[in-house]
Amino acid sequence: MSGAKKIALTDRIGVAAIYAIGLLSLALLVAPSLIVVAISFDTRSYVSFPPVGFTFDWYAKLFATPELIQAMWVSLKVGLIVTGMCLALGVPTAIACVRGRFKGRQALSVFVLFPHMVPGIVLGIAILFAGATINARPSIGLQSLAVACFILAVMIRIVMARLMRLDVALEEASANLGATRFQTFRHVVLPLLMPAIWAGAAFTFIEGFDNISVAIFTHGHRDRPLPVELMSLVQNDNTPMVAAVSAAQIALSVVILGVVSSTLGLEKLND
């Protein structure tokens, strides 16, 4: 009787401890971002928490800093180019990997998903070298190509996962009803892939916008992207303006999260 009680007690304590660590982790995941957002409205000119006042001054200063605005445009451009390239290259590749009927289909999947294993810093340095051999200097173009190469595997993976779950019978039904291959793609496969395509686009955009590991080696000298600018800002500026830039980035990620959760659904994302 007392033995059973003892087990129940240790069980309760053990589970409570696990829950406590879990809640602590969740707090540690969220709190830093909230602190940054709070600080970005502080009236003091140095960074401290909790803030003592409320002002939009640091955001005003942010928008009055031409290097930051320029960097945002560069990142936006890179994000859009990367997304476009990953869509154009990734979606057809995912289809070939899943629906293809040719020898070496498995090898193809391994090859196109391999970049995922190559660290960004290594890829960035390698592409910088390759560019330097053919006189292709770092630029928005080179940066976009490099980041697209780095993140393409993610787009392919998301689309492949969705495609694997699409019943082949739907495509057969379409063909049986008189649709050509292209019509089947246009009217059945593509609409049903849209959630994955949106999610993939969101991820590739954010990587194009935010990536630093590849970008720092491949960005143009006059076209510094936001993460590169932010990196030096964090090291050199200790006013809450850095927090304002960060808060703006957090806002962007919340928007992206909304896109992903309303298209693919958060649960499906994680399979």
Binding site: D167, A169, L170, E172, A173, S174, N176, V188
Partner: peptide
Amino acid sequence: VVFQNYALF
């Protein structure tokens, strides 16, 4: 063809 699980779009 009427498919096994109907394959409705």
